[in-house]
Design a protein around this nucleic acid. Sequence first.
DNA 1: GGACTTCATGAGAATCATTATCAATAAGCC
DNA 2: GGCTTATTGATAATGATTCTCATGAAGTCC
Lengths: 163, 163
Amino acid sequence: MTSTDTMTSTDTTESDLTSPERAASPRWTRQRQAIEDYLASCADFRTAQQIHDHLQQEGAGVSLPTVYRTLQQLAETGQVDQVRTGDAQTAYRRCLMTGHHHHLICRRCQTAVEVPGPDIQDWAAQVARDHGFSAVGHDLELYGVCADCSARGAPESPAGPAR
Amino acid sequence: MTSTDTMTSTDTTESDLTSPERAASPRWTRQRQAIEDYLASCADFRTAQQIHDHLQQEGAGVSLPTVYRTLQQLAETGQVDQVRTGDAQTAYRRCLMTGHHHHLICRRCQTAVEVPGPDIQDWAAQVARDHGFSAVGHDLELYGVCADCSARGAPESPAGPAR
DNA sequence: GGACTTCATGAGAATCATTATCAATAAGCC
DNA sequence: GGCTTATTGATAATGATTCTCATGAAGTCC
């Protein structure tokens, strides 16, 4: 399969631990535990590579394919948010906010803040109707420079979404 | 250099043929001509690969690196819009609408409609201020199924952004 | 507790989009 | 026409992600 989602801001609405997919109860493994624990401890988005590196350093040997697989599953069940970084990587973060929301991401330190969405859904639905489109969804991300980074004058992270 | 932009909805505002970068007037070559012509004839987004394939079939031999380079330049000068497809490809389309706008893209046939943005900029600026962020930009794409595809019941394009 | 079934994992290779390198070529200018 | 220099093309390289398949562990039944 392929990760066909551009973003999950739209989809977090369906995060629902009682969903049928979740009912398939994945086996509880040390590796999955390690990944979820790490995600739970992170305030900002991490790429699969970063997660893998961290777990390696911690001694929790988890292979890269496993990291990808687990993240994909978590994303499918709405347990993590995913965003595309500027350099074609996918970054993940445990979903803290239920319901429809978006992310305000610092271009330098990758810190992410979840923010409730405005009435974009209504607007999107209206636009779609006007053009004869159905089944609309949307992807919305906000990028900026957080207060800390502004004060520090830190250089932009090479891995981060630019501009 | 790297293509660090996640999307250019934000950036099309700065499309400005008189900008200093543009003043460096790129040389007019057969290859660039072919690429621009093709883009001008397309109503929807095309990936670099698709453009390359088409030009090959037409007999206008343009190498893939050249396609990428040209598209990047066009994107930098705001002459084309770029969006990320679901499967990690970047798709380009000639920018028809000047000023700030977004895209409503059909998941099945990739047809794209440019739509003027709502007051997201104001909202984004407000949210950013609330969280101490500066220099905000945003990425917003709308996805749906166009009227034609709905009627036709066409299967989803394997290359298109899903959901 | 032990055997069994089945899913998750890991190692490695493969894929695929994109970018870098560098010599050859063509555009623009005199 | 000759010169300078940006552009191109062939090729290799890069890097994220996915696939394959044998191995091992989790959950279940007895």
